[in-house]
């Protein structure tokens, strides 16, 4: 299940997927090969992603972990067609979307195969639209009549454990945890094959965090592929099958969650593992982190 992007390392064999049987799918939901993305023009042009190769199978949960500026959001935006690749290919549900025109993208998006959940639901939900209107929007865009759209969002609300009376509220009138679940529900209305979530739990407190993670776990059992983007290994560790570590625009490590966390190879992954807040920390960790930081800056 590892990919050419994560260069093989001298120490030890390629990690084996021990946690779950390899689904050995005929067709990955998402396949990215050799993706390069640049921002800026001419002299200000700089590389944000370099030679990223990653594929996500149906029903698989992949965590993409990296620090601010590592390019993880850009990766998501490339998959959604919001930024152009300067090299490499992106294939979504078997369709090569790398050179798609705006009109083709719109058609693809309306099908709703890939959905995206923004980090901050307060900003990604229109403050002047009720929860019902926000949830119905993707369906209305597909041409579903309003009445039918409203009928279809009701069961979704149950799925994300929200009471029906929330439908008439505005995003500003519900709690942060409820908003995040509304955002997740909105991503599910089109019955997508792949849902990408940007930091879905980092702004939430424990109770809401557990609830959102449980919803995602349930979602996974329905065969939907999930990509979780986070700066925190700890917040994806709970549900990710595989973890890909992005560092300065490159995938430096890809493997099963267990392997990456228990036997990290790249110094940055080691720092991530050692930095993730856990309940049982040893004083020795501090010295280890200091050493890793020093190693990464030189």
């Amino acid at each position: 299940m590892t990919h050419p992007g994560s260069a093989p390392r001298a120490d030890g064999p390629e990690p084996q997927d021990t946690r779950r049987d390899d689904p050995s799918p005929a067709r990955p939901v998402l396949a990215i090969t050799g993706l390069d993305v640049h921002y800026g023009l001419r002299r200000r042009r700089r590389k944000v992603l370099h030679d990223v190769t990653l594929s996500v199978a149906p029903g698989e949960t992949v965590g993409i972990v990296g620090e601010t500026g590592s390019g993880k959001s850009t990766l998501a935006r490339a998959v959604l067609g919001l930024v152009r690749a300067s090299a490499g290919t992106v294939t979504v549900a078997g369709e090569d979307v790398t050179g798609h025109s705006e009109a083709k993208w719109r058609r693809l998006r309306r099908r709703g195969t890939v959905q995206y959940v923004f980090q901050d639901p307060l900003r990604s939900l229109d403050p002047d639209l009720t929860v019902a209107d926000s949830l119905a929007e993707p369906l209305l865009l597909r041409g579903v009549p309003r009445g039918e759209a409203l009928a279809r969002i009701r069961p979704l609300l149950e799925r994300v454990r929200l009471p029906g009376e929330l439908l008439d509220r505005l995003p500003g009138e519900i709690s942060g945890g409820q908003r995040q679940r509304v955002a997740v529900a909105r991503a599910l209305v089109t019955e997508p094959e792949l849902v990408i979530l940007d930091e879905p739990v980092s702004a939430l407190d424990s109770a809401n965090r557990v609830q959102v993670l449980q919803i995602l776990k349930e979602l996974r059992t329905t065969g939907v592929a999930i990509v979780l983007i986070s700066h925190d290994l700890g917040s994806v560790a709970g549900i990710a099958d595989r973890i890909a570590v992005l560092y300065r625009g490159e995938l430096v490590e890809t493997g099963t969650a267990r392997d990456v966390i228990r036997r990290p190879r790249h110094p940055y992954t080691r720092l991530l593992v050692s930095s993730a807040p856990t309940l049982h920390t040893a004083p020795a960790d501090r010295a280890e982190r200091a050493a890793l930081r020093a190693a990464l800056t030189t």
């Binding site: 998006r109 309306r110 995206y116 923004f118 900003r123 597909r142 089109t190």
Partner: peptide, 10 residues
């Protein structure tokens, strides 16, 4: 972001 979200929805 909500406009971007709408664009992503097509």
């Amino acid at each position: 972001q909500y406009v971007e979200a709408a664009l992503i929805a097509g």
